[in-house]
Design a binder for these strands. Structure first.
Lengths: 350, 350
DNA sequence: CGATTTTCCGTGCACGTGCACGGAAAATCT
DNA sequence: AGATTTTCCGTGCACGTGCACGGAAAATCG
């Protein structure tokens, strides 16, 4: 017999001469089966290739599974807001599998909030978890608890070196920095580059921007060793100070035209840049926030590298759902996603 | 009562004082129900918001639905081969919905083959169809037949102006030509450009490359009006002739360094280009074929615009399956997908 | 040996829907 | 009026699995 998917539990019962109850016990190996019967059933399963019918299973047990999402709170217009659309699609896709999602969002600048949210999440006893890790230590202890409870989890955005995560969805951070440099400097003579960074809490240790910067700097060393690279720090919550810092910098270094950022706050520079159109700045940064796209289309931003958090969330939820319900292992553990290059001419279709 | 999804047919039967059989007849409006009963059931449904349980339905009727794919035959290494991975993923995703896919591939250079395949497909009476239209007239008569039979269909790659397609997945062709020009010419002084085209059958009337060329030329007219644009035709099946044609051209116009192609056969130029590294050509073209990616990574090809047929197929199958099984209408009819820009630094992760 | 525990297994109901069958009530006909 | 058709509706089984319950057979004990 070809291992067709038409083999039912009852078929196996008939063939082995046992009852469906016994076959069921073997399939879910919950004991109370003699060795002889166990072997007999297993032999038939191996030969005929039994595939459980997910509909019947779902219908029988009825209870829906729930996937918890542990993400930074997605205020409108911020990076994590981009994930929402993907989440909606994912919800629609896994709904027929009897899976529901629940949001647990935390303040990404507050490690205490992260820890509290973790506890809350654990108490809800979900069947699977999607994590965007921001704090290394806290995440590690959290995933340890998940493992102990046998709850599978998937990383998105960045990952940690735990061994038992089910999958990871994100872009290769180091390479994205490399790409960023190439896009800024190819076909142009560049002698002076500015990197604008976010002044932030030191607590945050699991940050892809660190690796991006490393990739960027390696590219520069390799391809344009005599180019000067300078850094500047801004405060994301203080627009006036940002402007002042930029003014002061370009007063001192008027020859600098090329600017790179390794996060999604590109739009913070836009007011300044648009007050100085004569300088013909070239700014490149990350992520397709609405404000960034708008500046891109206006020409103020030269290029964006998008990492599509919506696709990451969607992939994560889908993978987790299939694993929980159908016991299907993901094809790849590490799913590195496209780094999309956005210019004013291909940004409209997101 | 909130319109929770816990309302079953039996609930409705109890409330209306009728039996589940009658409710069932109303739900599938297959008659044999008095007006009074009909209205009573409908009222309850409107108020309580009945949502059928797809598992029970699928389990009960058992029979699987089938989606037919009408695509050009995807020989290994060609454009349509790229769709295969997306098809596999789609198959896995819709399998729990009880949907199967069947391939009907045709020779894209032979309209007769297209017509024959259409007939064959129709005879198999699928529940839904995915079409990549290559021949306009033939496709129109085909979709007309589908409409008559009440079979929903989805376009991918390019679409026709029929009104009753369920959805479309593809990239905006005109804009992709525009983008192509910008990527070739931004930040560089370009005075002379070559467009390499495929000499092909005149029958083919539904070809996105036409619109891409239009977008490209419009960009040039708009931004670099004094740039000369030349054209060249090659035969995709004759490598020797291709080389000869190219040699002759660049003998005559040695100043040309920038080359654009609006299809996936970029790799056909690679042997010639790699014999002349001293010329420092800049070639830009379409689609992430393995051969193209390899040349991109080597630096022979400067950039590729990828349209990800795998995602198109996946979206098409998914949409169709949800429509057939769950009667869920797609969120958008026209789904314009990303145009991905590929360079040597972001091509590896496909 | 009989009594009791343990091991093992079969039976039967539930999940929610689709659909065929047959039968009661109403409408029409003779 | 009774006989016949039409309209309408309820009942019951099937789909494949999960799981609880109870009971037979085997093993252990006194």
């Amino acid at each position: 017999m070809a291992p067709s998917s038409k083999v039912t539990i009852l078929d196996i019962a008939r063939i082995t001469g046992l009852s469906k109850g016994t076959v069921d016990r073997v399939l879910h190996n919950r004991g109370e089966v003699s060795k002889k019967s166990y072997e007999k059933v297993m032999a038939v399963i191996r030969e005929k290739g039994y595939q459980p019918n997910p509909h019947a299973a779902l219908l029988a047990k009825g209870k829906e599974k729930v996937i918890a999402l542990l993400l930074p709170s997605h205020t409108k217009g911020t990076y994590w807001d981009l994930a929402t659309s993907g989440l909606c699609r994912a919800e629609a896709e896994v709904e027929p599998l009897g899976v529901r999602t629940v949001n647990f969002s935390y303040d990404q600048y507050n490690p205490l909030s992260f820890r509290d949210t973790c506890r809350e999440l654990l108490e809800s006893r979900p069947h699977g978890v999607v994590i965007a890790p921001m704090y290394k230590e806290e995440t590690l202890s959290f995933t340890a608890q998940l493992s102990e409870l046998g709850i599978p989890y998937v990383f998105i955005d960045s990952k940690l070196d735990t061994e038992d995560y089910l999958a990871y969805f994100g872009i290769p951070s180091y390479k994205s920095g490399f790409l960023c440099a190439d896009m800024l400097c190819r076909r142009e003579k560049v002698t002076d580059v500015l990197i604008v960074r976010i002044r932030r809490d030191k607590h945050q240790q699991s940050d892809p921007t660190v690796e991006r910067r490393a990739g960027f700097l390696d590219y520069m060393r390799e391809h344009i060793p005599d180019c000067t690279v300078r850094s500047l720090f801004i405060d994301p919550s203080d627009a006036a100070e940002t402007d002042a810092v930029l003014e002061a910098f370009f007063q001192e270094f008027p020859q600098v035209r090329h600017i790179a950022m390794f996060n999604s706050r590109v739009h913070l520079l836009v007011p300044f840049l648009e007050r100085h159109p004569e300088k013909d700045f070239r700014l490149i940064g990350f992520d397709n926030l609405e404000a960034n796209i708008a500046a891109l289309v206006r020409g103020t931003v030269d290029m964006l590298i998008a990492q599509h958090p919506d696709e990451q969330v969607r992939g994560a939820v889908q993978t987790l759902a299939e694993y929980i319900v159908l016991h299907r292992k993901p094809a790849r553990k590490d799913n590195f996603m496209h780094m999309d290059l956005l210019t004013r001419y291909n940004a409209e279709d997101y």
